[in-house]
Amino acid sequence: MDSTRHLTASTFLFARFGASWRMCVIAHPRHGSYRRPGGHVLEDQAETPQDAAMRKALEESGYRPRLLPAPLPEGYPHPAVPGPWWTVDIAAGPDSRADGRHLHRDHVFVGVVPLTYEPQGPPALPVRWVDRDALEVLDTPTDTKVLGAHLFDVIGAVARPRTAAAPDEELATELLRRMELDQEVRLLPPASRTPEVMERWQEIDRDNRIWLEQLLAVRGWPGISEVGERAATAVWLFAQHSDPAPDFQLRCRDLLAEAVLAGEADPRHSALLQDRVRIAQGRPQVFGTQLYADEAGELAPAPLWEAEQVDLRRLEVGLEPLEDYLHACRQTAVG
């Protein structure tokens, strides 16, 4: 075998589907099996292995991951730093860079995708997201199965912040106070919604949006460990009701998705905000959470992406079947 050694980079790519983690694999046409995204480092262009890992993940899967610090064992004496989690020499057959057998020095990274239904580009290869059980029987190299199984054990902890934020009772109290105002006007019967009430409604939403924008700029998205579940719901509500500021709402969508990855937010809230943003952008929603009154005056879901799979996606994030959701909303509207 040729002693030539080529630098390569690959990424174990994970995402949360509700409470469950899955790993991204691609159907590799040359190998005839599933592989993690990866490829050669462009050394002639001074590309680093980290940059190559990001580039190949985007090219092959359509996703631009956030690379994680190396998931070192508990009590390891040095802090985790950005870089490859694993580096290994692998015997390789002829490919686009060599006519004969040679070596690949593969730099293995670990990354996460916060928004699985928002790829950044079209994938060059067929993509599949597998859970741990599916990985065990997948047609994929043994090292991918062994290392992938280990990562399934630790990815939840690695994706979390190193230390959870300390509880902030003062912030939680303020969030709950503002949420009470948010709901107070929305729960009024339609007959009570005078022009003065609607103006007050808009004022409350605007005040909460400006306040939240300032809060996020200073300390980031408040998670459940910091403010509790009810107050964390308030953070999402203020973002959900920020329709007049689409750029801010889009930023909130991304921050909330990252909070879900870290186990610091409710996946249902993320689904609702993702749908809200997509509808505002003129795109079909993913989870069927956004409704409108049809020609008969009955509540119906706004346009859906791959409607035949919507209940599966709703189940993943903890939402009831779409028909049950519609029934409940229609009953509330009638009541």
Rank of each mutant, 00 (worst) to 15 (best):
residue 3 S to V: 14
residue 7 L to S: 06
residue 17 F to E: 01
residue 18 G to V: 02
residue 19 A to M: 08
residue 21 W to N: 05
residue 22 R to S: 00
residue 31 H to I: 04
residue 33 S to Y: 10
residue 34 Y to A: 15
residue 40 H to G: 04
residue 41 V to Y: 00
residue 44 D to L: 13
residue 49 P to Y: 04
residue 50 Q to K: 14
residue 52 A to K: 00
residue 53 A to L: 07
residue 55 R to I: 13
residue 58 L to C: 09
residue 63 Y to C: 04
residue 64 R to I: 05
residue 67 L to A: 07
residue 67 L to Q: 06
residue 68 L to I: 07
residue 77 P to N: 10
residue 79 P to L: 11
residue 79 P to S: 09
residue 80 A to T: 01
residue 82 P to K: 13
residue 82 P to W: 05
residue 83 G to V: 14
residue 88 V to E: 08
residue 88 V to G: 13
residue 89 D to E: 08
residue 91 A to R: 15
residue 92 A to D: 05
residue 93 G to W: 11
residue 101 R to E: 12
residue 103 L to Q: 09
residue 105 R to K: 15
residue 106 D to L: 05
residue 127 V to F: 02
residue 127 V to R: 07
residue 127 V to I: 13
residue 128 R to C: 09
residue 136 E to Y: 13
residue 136 E to P: 10
residue 140 T to H: 09
residue 144 T to C: 07
residue 148 G to I: 05
residue 151 L to A: 10
residue 152 F to Q: 12
residue 154 V to M: 03
residue 157 A to G: 14
residue 166 A to H: 03
residue 175 L to K: 01
residue 176 L to Y: 12
residue 179 M to C: 06
residue 184 E to F: 14
residue 188 L to N: 02
residue 188 L to E: 04
residue 192 S to A: 11
residue 195 P to V: 02
residue 198 M to T: 14
residue 201 W to L: 06
residue 207 D to V: 09
residue 215 L to H: 08
residue 216 L to Y: 06
residue 219 R to L: 10
residue 220 G to N: 06
residue 224 I to E: 00
residue 229 E to M: 11
residue 233 T to G: 11
residue 234 A to T: 06
residue 238 F to H: 04
residue 246 P to G: 12
residue 250 L to A: 08
residue 252 C to I: 03
residue 254 D to L: 06
residue 257 A to W: 00
residue 258 E to K: 08
residue 267 P to R: 03
residue 270 S to A: 15
residue 275 D to F: 02
residue 277 V to L: 05
residue 278 R to H: 03
residue 281 Q to H: 06
residue 291 L to C: 12
residue 299 L to W: 02
residue 302 A to C: 11
residue 307 A to Q: 06
residue 311 D to R: 11
residue 311 D to G: 12
residue 318 G to N: 15
residue 318 G to I: 13
residue 319 L to F: 09
residue 326 L to E: 10
residue 327 H to R: 08
residue 329 C to Y: 02
residue 331 Q to M: 12
residue 331 Q to D: 03
residue 334 V to C: 09
